[in-house]
Amino acid sequence: MSKFVTGYSDIGGELEQLYATIMSSKPDWASELASLAIAVDEAKANADPEAALMATIKQQPEVGHAARRLAHVWYAGRLSAENGVDAAFVSEEAYFGGLIWRAARAHPPGLSGGYFGHWRYAPDV
């Protein structure tokens, strides 16, 4: 489900376990995520599963909320802001493993992006 929602097929490992633990500790996530799981399964039967899920998201706010929360934690490395207040990062690994930096073809600030001068050239990642 995480892979489907984020668009990255190679995620998993310790971060997945970490995020699963966090989600299971939050009572309001459980039913939402269950609805999302059903919606993802249904979407997979379509020719364009992503488009199908995006359509479901528009119709079912609960599914949309869950998808946004799930994608957010993977991309950002922290939970969504609440009442306009940004959450702290879940762990150092979560911050440094945030997909947002992969999407930008860059690297998280605070972690080397490579050799001296690589920024002169088009990204090699």
Binding site: F4, V5, T6, G7, Y8, E50, L53, M54, I57, K58, G64, A67, R68, A71, H72, Y75, A76, S80, A81, D86, L99, I100, A103, A104
Partner: peptide, 21 residues
């Protein structure tokens, strides 16, 4: 992070989210 929020609000997910962001 603000750009991410905006793309999520637009309802994008999966590869569409990755590419648009």
């Amino acid at each position: 992070f603000a750009a991410l929020e905006q793309k999520l609000v637009e309802g994008l997910i999966g590869s569409r989210l990755r590419v648009a962001l």
